[in-house]
Design a protein around this nucleic acid. Structure first.
Lengths: 111, 111
DNA sequence: ATCTACTGCAATCAAACGGTTGCGTTCGCG
DNA sequence: CGCGAACGCAACCGTTTGATTGCAGTAGAT
C-alpha cells in the first residue's frame, strides 16, 4: 500500500529547473516574503515573480499565507525531502543493477 | 572551503524535467541500450533520443560505452544520489528556520 | 468613505525546447 | 573490399516558457 498518489518527479523537477525560481527559493528559505517584496530585491518584475510563485505553490514547494492585504510566501522543505528520497531510491536501483552485473562478471572470472 | 565543485541543481533538474527523458532513464535503469535500440521501443525518432542522451550525459546521469559500432548507454545512480542529498540538505534548512520560528512563538506564549 | 497599495488577469514578444526530416560519415561485418 | 548499419550534423517547425507592460479589482489603513 503505497501512499495514494506516488510522487511524480517531473513537475517538481520542472519547477526546480529555473534559476530565477531558485533565487526566489533562496530568499524564502531565509524569510517569508510577498511577491512585491521579492520583486524589490530581484531583477525581475512583480508579475514574473508572481507567476513563479504560482508554479512553486502548485507543486507544494511554497505555501501562501495571507497577512493582511499582502500574501506572504513560505518555503516548504517537505516536498523537497520527498523528491530527494524518491531520487535516492531510483538512483540506488540503477547502481544495484550494476553491482549485480559486476558480481556476475566476477563469478565468471572465478570459473 | 566548500567541496571543489558545488553541485548546481538547475541543469540536473532541467534534465529531469522531461517525461521522455524519464522513459529513457527507466529503460537504461533496467538494461544498457543504444540510441537506436531505444528508438525502437519508444515513440520518438532516433535523433530525438540521441539529443536526450546527450543532455543526460552532459549532466552525468548517463554514461556512453562504446560496444563495437554501437554506443550503449548506462544509467548512473551517483549523480542522482548527489542531487538527492543536496535537495535534502536545502529542504532541511528551510524547515529548520520554521522550527526556530515556532520555538520563538512558543517562548512568547509561555511569557 | 476614500485613498492607496497590493494582487490578479490578459495580451504580447523573443528565446528555448522537443521533435522531425534529410544528408553525410564512419566503421564493423561478411 | 564493399555493403549496410549506426552515429552525428544541420535546417526547420510548432509549442512552450520566462518576461514585460498595461489595466482592472480588492481590501487595509487613515
Amino acid at each position: 500500500m503505497t501512499p495514494p498518489t506516488e510522487l511524480d518527479p517531473v513537475p517538481l523537477c520542472a519547477a526546480l529547473a529555473d534559476a530565477t525560481r531558485w533565487e526566489i527559493l533562496a530568499v524564502l528559505g531565509d524569510r517569508d516574503a510577498s511577491a512585491s517584496e521579492l520583486a524589490e530585491e530581484l531583477p525581475v518584475s512583480r508579475q514574473a515573480i508572481a507567476k513563479h510563485l504560482q508554479q512553486l505553490a502548485a507543486v507544494g514547494l511554497v505555501e501562501p499565507i495571507r497577512a493582511g492585504r499582502a500574501i506572504r510566501y513560505r518555503a516548504l522543505g517537505a516536498r523537497l525531502g520527498q523528491l530527494a528520497s524518491r531520487l535516492e531510491t531510483i538512483g540506488r536501483g540503477w547502481d544495484a543493477r550494476l553491482s549485480r552485473l559486476k558480481d556476475v562478471a566476477e563469478a565468471l572470472d572465478q570459473d
